[in-house]
């Protein structure tokens, strides 16, 4: 499948600007994560009150990629979702405490997509995905499908949050919290776009032992985008995804 990456906007603790991401891309390191979160000052406080950390990361990353008057399909992808919320709710159950109605109401995987829809007045399609280590690629398949259905562009957000320590040993693929938002366009819809924004993504069966990438696939893609790389290979279990830039 082919598409264009028209815009990228990402957030991670301490990485707020293009320059900071550029520097990270050249020297990728595990960032300290002390629970920092974007301020989301573009929203009035009353509208921020139910945004979790992962929701704030998602809003911050996606916000500038959608015009005020635009209606764009939204693909939210997260392998692990809001583990801190899940853990807090389970802890309350274990203690025999009543559950917080707000926490309970937002404890579904598509809650953040719903909040995006409400806050941005978006009434089109939205999708919430949870896959494995190649959740990012599955989100791109979804975006390609929406483009194929005629969407002018699709917003894709891949967001992961550092889980509570109780998940140590279970979740090992979130080195630090991050949100990566991409505005994805069809390959023919904008002939004026720079040629190097085009990418082709292919899926082939993976033979033999599975290898995992050094960084989560979405972060590795950000690294490649900033580094001007032309080719990436992300293998997971029986699937081998190859990315290459179309010039």
């Amino acid at each position: 499948m082919k598409f264009r990456i028209d815009q990228l906007h990402a957030w991670a603790p301490g990485l707020n600007t293009d320059e900071a991401w550029q520097a990270w891309a050249h020297h990728p390191v595990r960032l300290p994560d002390n629970g920092e979160q974007p301020g989301c000052e573009f929203l009035p406080p009353m509208q921020r009150r139910r945004l979790s950390r992962l929701a704030r990361m998602t809003m911050h990353a996606a916000w500038p990629l959608c015009g005020e008057q635009e209606q764009l399909p939204f693909v939210f992808a997260s392998r692990h979702g809001e583990t801190p919320r899940t853990f807090a709710l389970l802890s309350e159950v274990a203690d025999g405490q009543p559950l917080s109605p707000t926490q309970f109401g937002l404890s579904v995987h598509n809650a953040i997509a719903g909040q995006w829809s409400i806050l941005r007045g978006q009434h089109g399609e939205s999708v919430a995905l949870a896959g494995e280590a190649d959740t990012f690629e599955h989100a791109m398949v979804e975006a390609a499908a929406l483009l194929g259905e005629g969407a002018p562009a699709v917003l894709v957000v891949i967001a992961e949050e550092r889980p509570p320590s109780a998940y140590d040993g279970w979740i090992d693929d979130v080195p630090f919290s991050y949100a990566v938002a991409l505005r994805v366009g069809g390959i023919d819809s904008n002939p004026a776009a720079p040629a190097d924004q085009g990418w082709e993504l292919c899926l082939e069966p993976q033979q033999g032992t599975s290898t995992t990438a050094t960084w989560p696939h979405a972060l590795d893609f950000v690294r490649a985008l900033h580094g001007g790389e032309d080719r990436l290979e992300h293998a997971w279990k029986t699937r081998r995804w190859t990315w290459h830039r179309i010039r």
């Binding site: 009543p98 917080s100 707000t102 109401g105």
Partner: peptide, 13 residues
């Protein structure tokens, strides 16, 4: 203040 019904449930708890 602008609270809504979910706030009411939360506040009651």
């Amino acid at each position: 203040l602008g609270l809504d019904s979910v706030d009411a449930l939360e506040l009651a708890l």
